[in-house]
Structure formats: structure tokens, C-alpha cells
Simulated assay, not measured.
Amino acid sequence: MIYTVTLNPSIDFIVHVDQLEIGALNKMTQDFKLPGGKGINVSRILKRIKIESTALGFVGGFTGTFISDWLTEESIQNQFTTVADDTRINIKLKSGEETEINGLGPAITADEIADLKAKFSQLHPNDIVILSGSKPAGLAADFYEELIALVQQAGADFVIDTTGAELFAALPAHPLLIKPNNHELAELYDTSFSSIEDILPYGQKMLQDGAKNVIVSLGGDGALLFSGDKIYRTNVLTRPLKNSVGAGDSMIAGFIGRYAQTQDVVDAFKWGVACGSATAFSDDLAQADFIQELLPEVEVKEINI
């Protein structure tokens, strides 16, 4: 089983306004309410490529019910921990450029933390746990490390999609996959890149530091995969860019979903790129037929250095 963990989910309230005027009355031209959170996005894409997962995390109040009901409607298993405070609402205001206003998230009690951790007792050695996204205020700085220790205790694999100190702290535990973009990778090692060749030693260094597989997304230049002593690069698919929210989560879903089936990192990389690109070219998360349309266009080539 694949488990996704979203510690600070949200309702993403997407609002379109033709021309925003600060200090004046503005009327929406269109709006959407969607379940938000990186792990939740992963579960939703996994379902669309016919891979089962179980969503874990904290939800509370009427906003939390909206999220759990939505996943149930999509036939996605979820075992959320119910918390006393309301799940946050994030506003994505689209008027020319996008402006985001993100909620803080609920305060989490000791009993609620214990409830979430207790769910890790169901893990088995063949399971994969995907840890991703921000933490609500009040959780310990090393909370991801605490969860990783529970995953290791069960003999399961884990993926971590975060940045900075939390990502570095996870590397000695040998995550199955990490996915920094080129800017995040440069920040991690306090450097800068002026070419693809500059990135290669640092992707290899993340393997040396403990990661089993590393995907570095390059924006409009495709993506790199570092695995063992091999480096692979994909081509760039061409469609109008519509949506950056969830593209990275979709890439992780495609990679891990396919890897769980085949144990083939190159094939998994191809699926990851197709899923990530399909979301980037869609108004919301990618649909299955669009992912299938893009798969034949993805080319993966080994880089020799």
C-alpha cells in the first residue's frame, strides 16, 4: 500500500477577478473550491492512474469534512485524524498574476499527534509512505524525523517532499525518492547553477548523502533523474502552461505509482514526467486520458559524464 501524509491540508479557494482593485468592491468572475495539500494531490493522481493509496493527516471542522468527503467521493481511502480546530482555507487569487493567501492551519494537540502516529502501526515492509508539505504551527521542528523513525521501524520505504533542514535531516534515513527543483537544490548547497552540467555533481551528492533516487525538476528544461551511478534526462513536452499547483505532486505520484508496480526507475521517471506535465497543462490536477496521451511523447535519455 502507498500512504500519503498531509499534515496541513487545506481547501484551496480559487478566485478569478478580471481586474483587482485594492480597497474597492471586486466581483468574482469564476471560483472553485478544491481539496488542497501535497499528499492529497498525490493520492488523487494515484487514483487516476489506477493505483490505490490511503491518505493520512490532520483534518478538522467543516473544512476538514469537505476534504474527507471529496476523497470519499473519488473512492480514495482515507484514515484522517480528526482535530478540534478547523482545517485552513488557502486563497488563490487570479487577476493577471496569481496572489496567494495561505492559512496558518490548526493547532494540534498531543492526543491528536498520538492518534496519527498510531496509524503507522499498520505499515508493512512493502509499503511506501509519502511525506510532503508544510506542518501546522506547533508541531515540533523534527516531526518528520519522528514519522520517518516509525516508517523505518516497520521496514517500509518513504518519500519526502520538503526543503531545507527537514530534507537534509531525512537523507541519512535513505528516502526512496526526493524531488527538489534546481533552485531548491542550489539553496540546499548554498550555490548557484548556470548550466545543466553544474547541477550534475549536486544531484550525485544527494545520492551520496543518502537518497536512493533524486529527481531534479528544471522547469521549462525538463527534469533529471539520479539513480545509482546513472543520470537520466527527459525532453520537454510542449503545451500551453496553465497550472503550476500540483505539478510536482503529480510527478511524485506518477513515479512512485509506477515504481511500486515495476521497480523500474526509468519507466517510473517517464510516468512521473507525463503526470507532472499533464497537470501543468490542465486547469486542475491531470485526468487519466491526458496522462495517457502524453506518455508516448516522453523521452528519457541517459547522460554520460
Rank of each mutant, 00 (worst) to 15 (best):
I2T: 02
K230D: 08
A211F: 02
N26F: 01
F158E: 08
A140T: 11
H174A: 13
I130Q: 02
L34T: 12
S217E: 02
F255D: 04
E187V: 06
K117N: 12
L7Y: 12
A268H: 12
I199H: 08
K205C: 00
G64K: 10
N90I: 07
E52A: 14
S95G: 03
E302A: 15
E98A: 08
G60H: 09
N78R: 10
A137Y: 07
P172F: 15
D12M: 12
I11E: 04
P9T: 09
E302K: 14
S134Y: 05
T87V: 03
N90C: 14
I148C: 04
E184W: 08
I91C: 02
T65V: 07
R258N: 15
F255R: 01
A211Q: 10
S194D: 14
V59P: 00
A154L: 05
L294A: 10
I160Y: 01
L93M: 13
G39K: 10
Q204Y: 13
A137N: 14
S10H: 10
W271I: 00
I40H: 09
L123A: 01
W70K: 15
L176R: 08
L34H: 11
G39T: 04
A140W: 03
L241N: 03
L224E: 12
G36R: 13
T163A: 15
V5N: 13
S217V: 04
V298M: 08
E297P: 02
E187L: 15
A165P: 02
P296V: 03
P180Y: 12
L104A: 15
F255L: 00
I49L: 06
G254P: 01
A156K: 03
L46W: 06
Y144S: 12
D264I: 09
S10P: 05
Y144L: 05
N304W: 00
L237A: 07
A55W: 05
F281P: 03
A156D: 04
G276Q: 10
N213A: 14
K135G: 00
K119Y: 03
G105W: 15
L139D: 10
F120T: 08
I113R: 15
I303L: 15
V5E: 07
G138T: 09
D127R: 05
A278M: 05
E197G: 10
E97A: 08
G248D: 11
L56G: 01
A278L: 00
I291D: 11
K38T: 06
M28L: 14
P125D: 03
D267T: 13
V5H: 11
E100D: 13
E21K: 15
L224T: 05
G138C: 11
I291E: 06
K47C: 01
E187G: 12
I67Y: 09
G103M: 12
E297Y: 13
S10T: 12
L237Y: 09
K135Q: 14
R48V: 01
